[in-house]
């Protein structure tokens, strides 16, 4: 290294990062100006690392959770009614097994009993039919005009919420009439979703 020529920025950064050559190191040892520049680079790095932090916005998680919920619903719809029944049965089993407040474990038979009961069975079967229709129409692959897209989004959110409420009701062992009401509302919401798709059939961009 020519002692009359100062180190380049690349050389100084390599030295700072512990990757400099022996000749660069010996130059810095002998050159006050380059040693000063190297010290300055250390200081800038320290100042960068000590820069103040920003507070993140507060309400982002709700948006993320809603989007995740919608995506899960779409996946479930596209897997069809059998997938839904299996997922719901699994949820019921997991929920019931995980719940110490229930005092007893329930098998998938509990779900089957629910699905075939006279008060909830018809709504559960209708839910499955409607989801089959939605699955056949492949909602995830459609593009709607903005108002319809918003309505579809609201209805899908509502179904996600109803599913969450059904899970919570099972955990809490709420009144059976509440569950019947939730299943009825789920059917009504799915009916609206299917109806919306039928009305939009001619206006859909594929």
């Amino acid at each position: 290294m020519d002692k009359t020529q100062h180190l380049s920025m690349d050389d100084l950064l390599a030295l700072r990062d512990g990757e400099g050559s022996a000749s660069s190191r010996s130059h810095v040892d002998a050159c006050d100006e380059c040693r000063c520049e190297l010290e300055r680079l250390y200081q800038i790095q320290a100042r960068l690392r000590a820069m103040p932090t920003f507070s993140p916005p507060r309400d982002i998680w709700r948006r993320i959770a809603r989007s995740v919920g919608r995506r899960r619903l779409r996946r479930r719809l596209s897997y069809g009614a059998i997938g839904l029944a299996a997922a719901a049965a699994l949820t019921a089993v997991v929920v019931l097994r995980g719940s110490s407040t229930m005092g007893s474990e329930q098998s998938p038979d509990a779900w089957i009993a629910e699905a075939t009961s006279p008060d909830m069975g018809p709504s559960i079967r209708r839910s499955r039919q409607l989801e089959s229709i939605l699955q056949a129409n492949r909602p995830g692959q459609r593009v709607y005009d903005a108002p319809t897209a918003l309505a579809v989004s609201v209805l899908e959110d509502r179904i996600v919420l109803l599913d969450q409420m059904l899970s919570e009701v099972r955990i809490g062992g709420a009144d059976r009439a509440v569950m019947v009401g939730l299943w009825d509302e789920r059917v009504a919401t799915l009916e609206k979703l299917v109806g919306l798709q039928a009305v939009q059939e001619d206006r859909v961009w594929r």
């Binding site: 820069m51 920003f54 507070s55 993140p56 916005p57 982002i60 993320i64």
Partner: peptide, 26 residues
């Protein structure tokens, strides 16, 4: 969320993009 937001803010240089980074990341 805080380190991700700060990383986005420092790399992109503004609040809006940092918020996008935070949302897209999670």
């Amino acid at each position: 969320r805080a380190p991700v937001y700060n990383l986005g803010r420092r790399m992109c240089g503004n609040e809006e993009d940092a918020e996008d980074v935070l949302q897209e990341t999670f």
